[in-house]
Write a protein that binds this DNA or RNA. Structure first.
Lengths: 203, 203
DNA sequence: CGCGTCATGCGAACACTGTACGCAGATCGC
DNA sequence: GCGATCTGCGTACAGTGTTCGCATGACGCG
């Protein structure tokens, strides 16, 4: 059969790891972690589940890829004094997790243990912020881990809460009225802690 | 049939939520999160899976119960200045998570959102440490969340790493030789960050 | 003591999961 | 043009959480 532009219809164009990972992120953002099955993911790419295994070893590897993919959204740039650069990076990481709350659910499983290219790149750049800021060799690493720890911990709790919102279908206003933390308060809480942590790291 | 001590054999003695939760913790500690299925858990209690549903609504509810159960191992006591009491509580929380690394895998799902009795008790006591330490009303809450955030984040990463160790079957020495962090270094890292965070919270 | 009510255990079944295997067809290098 | 390699997929299997209905035992009350 002649392979015209029309026979190879639009959204197929051949499976690839990139396309699979991108579709997985979409699905996770839309429906959460438990909605991600190899079959539903395949359907979205209109294929069958077993085809995915040509490009991805198994579901666990897929999840690692997906996590590293969203780590790519974390921005860490040197601009001005180390404190403000680090604070911006911290805010960017938090924003990423809140955009993709399912990340919180898998962080404990993948953790920062196996590092994909995006994560290791961001770690290196963050580390550089500290060394450039005057932290002596080994201490830069400790300082970096301290703020990463703070941001991850704080944000995991937030994301779990956001997912709870989504699951129960309530919107935030409603729960806020019942005394649960609001977005504005969570922002303030995060900023408070961040400021203190950074202050503690300064000599 | 006469119900002698021998006919109702030892480890049965009737199912109960407590017994189920205790067995689940054992199983999780021994074989990790993915080894926990309703059927394997039932087998350990020698029963069948469906019997568990008389005492537990869901697997999800079971997990909430199990998480709150281990939160009970966290010790928070007031002794001396707030800094050292808070530091001890932080160390206790970390030790608990490292004893039960699977907690890290589910923290993102349950989070600190739905709080069981143990968790809410520990939170209250921790908060009291700050208010007694002189933190004005609202700030005590912010400070508490800051150190909780730090401990959770740092520890989740550690636990993920510990689970990686267990999964790959390697012992720590071997990996350490390849440049991965050792237990001693992780202890030091945690203490460094904890100290800085507490310092940042002091005025 | 006896009878009814209720709690508990469980067998069977359902919809769904991740994944191994082997076959077909397309694609690409020579 | 031909052979090898790559890609998609149908089928199948073991395992999952959970529901439903039945049976059997314990317990309260007359």
């Amino acid at each position: 059969m002649v392979s015209s532009v029309w026979t190879r219809e639009r959204p197929r164009a051949g499976l690839s790891q990139d396309r699979i990972v991108a579709a997985a992120v979409e699905l996770l953002d839309a429906d959460g972690l438990e909605a991600l099955s190899m079959r539903t993911l395949a359907a979205r790419l209109d294929t069958k589940a077993t085809s995915l295994y040509r490009h991805v070893a198994n579901k666990d590897e897929l999840i690692e890829l997906v996590v590293d993919e969203v780590y790519g959204e974390m921005e860490v740039v040197a601009s001005g004094p180390w404190r403000s650069s680090v604070a911006d990076a911290a805010r960017s990481l938090r924003a990423m997790v809140l955009r993709h709350p399912w990340v919180a659910s898998v962080l404990g499983q993948v953790g920062l243990a196996e590092l994909g290219p995006n994560l290791s790149d961001r770690s290196a750049r963050l580390l550089a912020l500290f060394t450039d800021g005057g932290f002596p060799g080994e201490e830069a690493d400790l300082a970096m881990k301290t703020v990463l720890g703070y941001v991850v911990g704080m944000t995991v709790s937030e994301a779990a809460y956001v997912q709870l919102l989504a699951r129960t279908g309530q919107d935030e206003e409603e729960l806020t009225a019942h005394g649960v933390t609001s977005k504005a308060l969570r922002d303030k809480t995060f900023e408070y802690g961040l400021e203190r942590v950074l202050k503690g790291l300064g000599d």
